[in-house]
Simulated assay, not measured.
Amino acid sequence: MSNHTCRLEQALLLVLLAFFSAAVLAHGVDDSTRSFLQQNSGVQFVPFLYIGAKHMLTGYDHLLFLVGVIFFLYKSRDVLLYVTMFTLGHSITLLWGVLGNIQVNAHLIDAIIGLSVVYKGFDNLGGFKRLLGYQPNTRLMVLLFGLFHGFGLATKLQEFQLPEEGLLTNLLAFNIGVELGQFAALAFILIAINFWRRLPSYERFATLTNTLLMSAGFMLMGYQLTGFAVL
Rank of each mutant, 00 (worst) to 15 (best):
M1W: 08
C6D: 12
L8P: 07
L13R: 12
L13F: 13
V15M: 13
V15P: 02
F20C: 06
F20S: 06
A23H: 12
A23P: 05
A23M: 13
H27L: 07
V29N: 03
S32A: 15
R34E: 10
S35P: 00
F36N: 11
Q38S: 14
Q39A: 15
G42R: 03
V43F: 11
F45P: 06
P47D: 07
P47Y: 06
P47R: 06
F48I: 00
L49Q: 00
A53C: 08
L57H: 08
L57A: 10
L57M: 15
T58W: 06
T58M: 14
L63Q: 07
I70H: 02
Y74F: 13
Y74K: 14
S76G: 09
T84W: 06
G89R: 00
I92E: 02
T93N: 04
T93P: 04
L94F: 03
W96Q: 04
N101P: 04
V104G: 08
N105Q: 12
D110H: 15
V117Q: 11
K120N: 06
G121R: 00
N137C: 11
R139F: 08
L144N: 00
G146R: 02
H149N: 04
G150P: 06
L153N: 02
L153W: 00
E159L: 15
L167E: 02
L172T: 03
A173H: 06
I176T: 15
E179W: 01
Q182D: 13
A185V: 13
F188C: 15
W196S: 12
R198P: 05
R198Y: 13
P200E: 09
P200D: 12
Y202I: 08
E203R: 15
F205R: 13
T207H: 11
L208P: 01
L212A: 11
F218V: 14
M221N: 01
Y223F: 07
Q224E: 12
L225P: 00
G227R: 10
